[in-house]
């Protein structure tokens, strides 16, 4: 079975700057993978690339069975990206935003309603304009929209950022539930303690290149197949 994410020698340019400089990575269906690394390492660019939003300069990039160079449109509708930006219209209410993006993605409005209830958005916040929400509340709306889409591949960029304790626990529960029903999850995070508990496999990215892939047996059973180790790791004594 083809991996959900299959990258070989992928280079991605932001202007003339190589944000990704020869990335090799494979992620299987149902896996939860943690992307870790310092600021500017290329984590967000890697997530955007996997979402089909960032063009591949060189290398091979296949996501959900599609070549990103030629079929990024087929990938986009099947992934859910939780980015730093929340993708919300400030002048619309919470309910308006959830409804619009759910219909835009041709997803089910009942799923959207359930997601709003789960995120605590269905009652008094539903008719509040997004411009009046706090950072954490905006984040909850973005997560509700992501849930309603039922993506096959979840790409989460700092998913715990801005959330209270209850919200963080909820994100963890949603990630586990998604993986249980076969979705694949990639999390970029600086909150390593929390994210590491979710993800059996940790990918370290520095300067646009993967420098280590390690397995955390405490988080789950997934190991690191040898072919998925980066060159530098495989050749280490």
């Amino acid at each position: 079975m083809e991996p959900v994410i299959h990258l070989r020698g992928v280079v991605c340019l932001l202007g003339r700057f190589p944000a990704l400089a020869g990335v090799d990575l494979s992620v299987e269906q149902g896996e939860i993978v943690l992307l870790q690394g310092p600021n500017g390492a290329g984590k967000s660019t890697l997530l955007r690339l996997c979402a089909g939003l960032q063009p591949v300069a060189t290398g091979t990039a296949r996501v959900l069975g599609h070549d990103l160079a030629t079929e990024s449109h087929q990938v986009r509708v099947r992934v859910g990206l939780l980015a730093h930006a929340t993708f919300l219209y400030d002048d619309l209410t919470v309910a308006d935003n959830v409804r619009f993006w759910t219909l835009a993605a041709k997803a089910d409005l009942d799923d959207a309603q359930r997601a709003m209830q789960r995120l605590g958005l269905a009652d008094r916040l539903a008719e509040v304009k997004v411009s009046r929400l706090s950072t954490g509340q905006r984040r909850r709306v973005a997560i509700a929209i992501l849930m309603a889409r039922r993506p096959e591949l979840w790409l989460l960029d700092e998913p715990h950022a801005g959330l209270d304790q209850d919200g963080r626990d909820l994100v963890d529960a949603l990630v586990r539930e998604a993986a249980e029903v076969g979705a694949t999850v990639v999390i970029a995070s600086h909150e390593l303690d929390r994210a590491a508990q979710l993800a059996p496999r940790h990918v370290t990215i520095v300067g646009g290149a993967i420098t280590a892939i390690t397995a955390d047996t405490a988080a789950g059973p997934a190991g690191v197949p040898e072919h998925q180790q980066p060159e530098a790791v495989r050749s280490a004594p």
Binding site: G52, R76, V77, H84, F87, W101, A104
Partner: peptide
């Protein structure tokens, strides 16, 4: 300008419209 705020243009591309 409505589509330029808070990454909305990316979301439009992801929505498959």
């Amino acid at each position: 300008s409505l589509e330029g705020g808070d990454g909305v243009r990316d979301a439009l591309r992801l929505a498959g419209l």
